[in-house]
Simulated scan of single mutants.
Amino acid sequence: MSNIKNIKKNKEAILTGEIGALLHDIGKLNPCFIGTNSIENIPQRFHHANIDGFLKTELISLLKAFEEQKIKGESIRIYNIITEHHKKDNILQGCDRKDSADDKGIVRKKQTLKNTIISSPFGYPKEKVDLNCLQKSFDDLQNILIKLLKDYISGMVDLSYFRRTLMKELQVFFSHGLGETRIPSNDVTLWDHSYSTASRFKSLLVAKLYGADTKDPELRIFGIFWNGIEFINKGRKIAEIKARKEIIERIKEKLKGKFEDEIPVGNSIYEDINGICFTFPEFERAEELANQCAKEACEIVLEESENELWP
């Protein structure tokens, strides 16, 4: 069986793991997370992984009802991924810690409960976290998740649709929460942290599929590049220039669909007018898989650009 066929065969398990990783820190959207980590320390204790204590009962039941998957005999259940992500010798724990180390650096100063700020990467205040609004967002997100999970479990939508919709909703809500409340790392939104952690975890699940050592995990980056500037500059009229830019955007969206969903090797982590990069698994035959993926990517780029863009 080719590498790509094997990944496609295990697509549901990989995407289920990614979904669990995207939701692993949902408890950090609860205002109690802000309070516990504030100077005031109110409430004194709040464990964001103990979702049974603060998520709606119906949502908990649906998370538990989500179909269990397996990779190399290891169980993948969304509920367990969320509640056990701090457990030692857990693949997700390694991803979580690695992303935290990369994103947060040296954390120094707590914020006050009434003046918790999300800052820009340059340190400027970007958004003040209103705890009442945060609670409303938390409640609204739970209702959305309940409906989405019901639709999936009942068979009304497939896993790919579920994933796409979930990511869109989480990006909206998690972008107004914090993955780290303390200064100077309060520029890391909950979405930043969750997406990065899930992307690492997703690629590591693929590596695990091929027997890689996930206790000391490594990742690769898979990039597809082209001369987008030259391609756009060939346009002579405004409408043609705009159309060429749209072609590049369409290529990137199709590449995301190919390597995030159809052949789920990872997630996009960088893109511009000249290309796009994805997280990619590291294992003994990674180069072979990369070559197979490169052929798939070339077909998309050439077809969408009518053979004008060459990766």
Rank of each mutant, 00 (worst) to 15 (best):
K5Y: 03
N6S: 14
N10D: 11
N10W: 03
K11W: 05
K11F: 06
G17C: 04
E18P: 00
G20Y: 01
D25H: 11
D25K: 09
K28F: 08
K28C: 09
C32S: 11
S38R: 06
E40I: 06
N41F: 06
I42Y: 07
P43E: 00
P43H: 02
Q44D: 05
H48K: 07
I51A: 03
G53N: 13
F54E: 02
T57I: 14
S61I: 03
L63R: 04
K64N: 07
K64W: 05
K64L: 10
K72I: 05
S75C: 13
I76S: 06
I78T: 10
I81W: 03
E84K: 14
H86L: 14
D89E: 15
N90W: 04
L92Q: 02
L92P: 02
G94I: 11
D96S: 13
D96N: 13
D99Y: 10
S100F: 11
A101S: 12
A101R: 11
D103M: 13
K104C: 11
K104F: 12
Q111S: 12
T112N: 15
T116G: 09
F122R: 12
P125L: 08
K126W: 09
K126S: 13
K128F: 14
V129D: 08
V129Y: 07
L131Q: 09
Q135V: 00
L141I: 02
Q142N: 08
I144W: 04
K147W: 05
L149D: 03
K150V: 08
D151S: 15
G155T: 11
V157W: 05
D158G: 11
L159Y: 05
S160N: 14
Y161T: 15
Y161P: 01
T165D: 12
T165R: 12
T165S: 13
L166S: 10
K168D: 14
K168F: 12
E169C: 13
Q171L: 07
G179M: 08
S185L: 01
D187Q: 04
S194H: 08
Y195R: 12
S196M: 09
T197W: 04
T197N: 10
S199V: 05
R200Q: 10
F201E: 02
F201N: 05
S203G: 05
Y210V: 06
Y210C: 05
D213P: 08
T214H: 00
K215C: 12
E218V: 09
L219H: 09
R220M: 11
R220E: 08
I221L: 15
I221F: 13
F222C: 05
F222G: 01
I224H: 00
W226K: 01
G228N: 02
F231V: 03
F231E: 03
F231Q: 03
I232G: 00
K237A: 09
I238S: 04
K242Y: 09
R244G: 03
E249A: 15
E253N: 12
L255Y: 00
K256S: 10
K256L: 03
K256C: 09
G257Q: 07
V265P: 00
V265I: 15
V265N: 04
N267M: 08
I269M: 08
Y270E: 13
E271H: 09
E271N: 10
E271Y: 06
I276W: 00
I276R: 00
F278R: 03
F280L: 06
F280D: 01
F280H: 04
F280A: 01
F280S: 02
R285T: 11
A290F: 06
N291K: 12
Q292N: 13
C293Y: 00
C293F: 01
A294L: 13
A294W: 07
K295F: 02
E296I: 02
E304Y: 11
E306N: 14
N307K: 12
